[in-house]
């Protein structure tokens, strides 16, 4: 696709067959395999080179930095400090430990809830009724809105005298009083969880929807003939048919959830009292804002390892058991 049309004149045209000998055919096959190998590498090369340059290399650079005391701004050259940064993280940085816990709490809530709500929405908008596309679009709108914009809007709504509290006050007739959601250590992470799910659930709704639409209608018909209820249809037809979709949804939500950053940066800066600090946020705060590049890289490295572990565990748990 990168080359102009003219470089492949034979494209699409049937090439006349020529009679071949068995021997030359074998030679041709060898040549064909070689060509296949070469072409494979060539076609993958642009993407691989770019990934290498702009993802893998910086990651390796970060790995290297994590064993040094490198600083963002300093007249002194970085020094090799061995495992000092790792020791610091695990023994003398309570915020790091708190960040780790918060990150996993966030993921532990967001992954099942967002996946579940996404599926619920998908089932809703999978109905064959008029105007259903409009609803699909509406549910997807937060996904296309910048997370920075979304975070600013929600910060407004979470104010003590903001919309959320006003709403709670109204529907409970004043029985329940809201709080300063983002300034209360007990509610801040929950508030960010709600906003994050609201923002991203539309995406996973679409993924579930794609899964739902690959399930043949005949299966439902057969189930209905057997007198299956709507719930039984879901359990026996829909859910088994969504297996691979589920794996995809879980993996993508998990990765996104563990990388939580922008919402924290815009809304709470890790506060109040560390209740919303996350690993990526802590890495940026240390490595960039407080200029300790080496230590920030260490936190990133630990983060990568943890995420990889989670991914592997997830892979194991969701493997095909048959």
């Amino acid at each position: 696709m990168t080359t102009p049309i003219s470089t492949s004149p034979a494209a699409g045209l049937p090439v006349p067959e020529t009679p071949r000998q068995a021997g030359t055919r074998r030679a041709t096959r060898g040549a064909a395999l070689r060509r296949e190998r070469r072409t494979g590498l060539t076609m993958a090369a642009p993407a691989l080179v770019l990934l290498l340059l702009f993802l893998i290399l910086p990651v390796l650079l970060a790995f290297g930095l994590s064993f040094t005391n490198a600083r963002l701004i300093s007249p002194n050259p970085p020094r090799f400090v061995g495992l000092d940064n790792f020791l610091r993280a695990f023994t003398s940085d309570p915020v790091f430990l708190r960040s780790t816990i918060n990150t996993f709490v966030f993921a532990a809530v967001v992954v099942p809830v967002q996946a579940g709500l996404g599926l619920l929405l998908a089932v809703l908008v999978n109905q064959k009724i008029r105007g259903v596309t409009a609803f699909r679009v509406i549910y997807f709108i937060p996904v296309v809105t910048s997370i920075v914009v979304v975070s600013i809007l929600w910060r407004f709504m979470y104010q003590p005298d903001g919309l959320v509290n006003n709403f709670i006050d109204t529907i409970t007739f004043g029985a329940l009083q809201g709080t300063a959601w983002l300034n209360n250590p007990d509610t801040a992470l929950g508030a960010i969880i709600v906003l994050s799910i609201w923002q991203a659930v539309g995406f996973h709704m679409l993924i579930w929807l794609s899964g739902l639409q690959t399930i043949p209608e005949e299966l439902y018909e057969a189930a209905r003939m057997d007198g299956a209820s709507v719930w039984q249809q879901f359990v026996n037809v829909t859910w088994p048919g969504l297996r691979s979709t589920m794996v995809f949804v879980l993996v993508t939500i998990t990765i996104a959830a563990l990388g939580l950053f922008v919402q924290i940066d815009v809304m709470t800066q890790g506060g109040p009292v560390n209740s919303t600090t996350t690993l990526v946020y802590h890495a940026v705060r240390k490595g960039y804002r407080e200029q300790e590049t080496g230590y920030g890289a260490t936190i990133s490295l630990i983060f990568f390892v943890l995420v990889l572990l989670v991914a592997l565990v997830q892979r194991y748990l969701t493997r095909d058991k048959d």
């Binding site: 650079l61 970060a62 990765i255 990388g259 950053f261 990526v280 940026v284 990133s300």
Partner: peptide
């Protein structure tokens, strides 16, 4: 191998490599 590496890179949030990227 390439496919596994590509998939593994999904876990890298951009924020964590931004600083090395600027130098680079």
């Amino acid at each position: 191998l390439v496919l596994s590496v590509v998939i593994a890179t999904l876990i890298v949030p951009f924020e964590t490599i931004a600083v090395p990227m600027v130098y680079w």
